[in-house]
Amino acid sequence: MKHIILAIDSFKGCLSSVEAEDAAEHGLRERWQDVKVVKVPVTDGGDGMLNVFLHLFDCEKVAVNCHDALMRPIQVNYAVREDNTVIIESALSCGINLLKSHELNPLRATTYGLG
């Protein structure tokens, strides 16, 4: 029996880490039906980090109102583990993925909404 560990980061704007690993597992199983696959979602700390933590740990997901990098009101999530560790993905509130290309201006943008 073959043993394969999948630890795939997300594909920005396309697939989450979990979705990429599910797709890879599907392809592997088409070739080898008896393969043992272990999936370990990973993150580089950017987009998708919160979802990886929610997948790996028993967390409560909490919604909160805040502001994006241009101070527009938005709602984002953070997570709280059983041991009261809080997981915050800053890209959800002030990441450049929330801005259109003509809005990318470091002189106007802020991380105020994160804190």
Rank of each mutant, 00 (worst) to 15 (best):
Q75G: 07
A69Q: 07
G13A: 00
H3A: 09
V37A: 02
P73W: 00
L114E: 04
K39Q: 15
S17C: 00
Y78L: 00
A63N: 14
L98N: 15
A24S: 15
F11S: 00
A69K: 01
M49D: 08
N97M: 13
G45Y: 08
F57A: 03
V35W: 05
D68Y: 01
P41T: 05
A20D: 10
D44Y: 04
Q33W: 06
L28Y: 09
P41F: 04
C59F: 14
L54V: 10
G27P: 11
K39M: 12
V76W: 00
V76D: 12
L54K: 14
N105F: 08
R72E: 08
K36W: 11
G46I: 03
L104Q: 01
L98D: 12
S10M: 07
H102A: 05
D68V: 02
P106K: 03
V62A: 07
L70E: 12
E89Y: 10
A69I: 01
T111M: 07
D34W: 02
F57S: 09
G46T: 03
I4A: 04
C66F: 03
A7V: 05
D22I: 12
Y112E: 13
E25G: 09
L56E: 11
D9Q: 02
P41I: 05
E103P: 02
N51F: 12
G27H: 07
Y112D: 12
T85H: 06
V52Y: 11
Q75R: 11
N105Q: 06
V18A: 02
L28H: 08
V62R: 07
E21A: 14
L104A: 00
I4F: 03
E89R: 09
R108S: 13
L92W: 11
D83L: 06
L104E: 03
V37Q: 07
N51M: 13
I74F: 06
H102D: 15
D22H: 12
V62D: 04
L15Y: 15
T111V: 10
L54G: 13
D44S: 03
C59E: 11
Q33S: 10
K39Y: 10
D47C: 09
E60G: 01
A79G: 08
K36G: 11
G115H: 10
T43H: 02
E82V: 11
R72M: 02
Q75F: 00
K36E: 15
I4H: 00
